[in-house]
Design a protein around this nucleic acid. Structure first.
Length: 109
DNA sequence: CCAATGACTACAA
DNA sequence: GTTGTAGCCATTG
């Protein structure tokens, strides 16, 4: 399907590669896709990712590790709880040791 | 087709 | 070091 969803599928493919207990950023995904400046569009794709059960959008946060999109999970605490359930520590909607749990997309595992 | 929106990021003051 | 503005790109109206 070479439709608008194509771009989203690219994002989904990367987000699904995020391992358990790890998180990534919009910029990392955008850059990996070759659209370093489309970070916003990546977040937009996340909004559509709601329809994808295989897309752990809660593992995607902004470059500061802040849960900016927690509002889009139906509950402002849903995203945080999901991350905490994976062993993350969140304070003030911000992931602690963010760089420690940060994961970056790779072409080979 | 034009205008507005958005889960971002980088630069400047 | 904090706050504000600008740029960017894809989607939607």
């Amino acid at each position: 399907m070479t439709q608008s969803t194509d771009f989203f599928e690219r994002v989904y493919a990367v987000v699904r590669q995020v391992p358990y207990g790890k998180v990534t950023t919009y910029g990392a995904i955008a850059r990996f896709l070759g659209a370093a400046k489309s970070a916003r569009t990546v977040g937009y794709a996340m909004n559509a990712a709601h329809a994808r059960a295989d897309v752990p959008a809660h593992r995607v946060v902004n470059r500061t590790g802040l849960l900016t999109g927690k509002h889009h999970f139906g509950g402002i605490n849903t995203m945080q709880q999901l991350l905490e359930a994976e062993g993350h520590t969140i304070v003030d909607d911000q992931i602690q040791n963010f760089e420690t749990v940060l994961w970056q997309p790779t072409r080979c595992g």
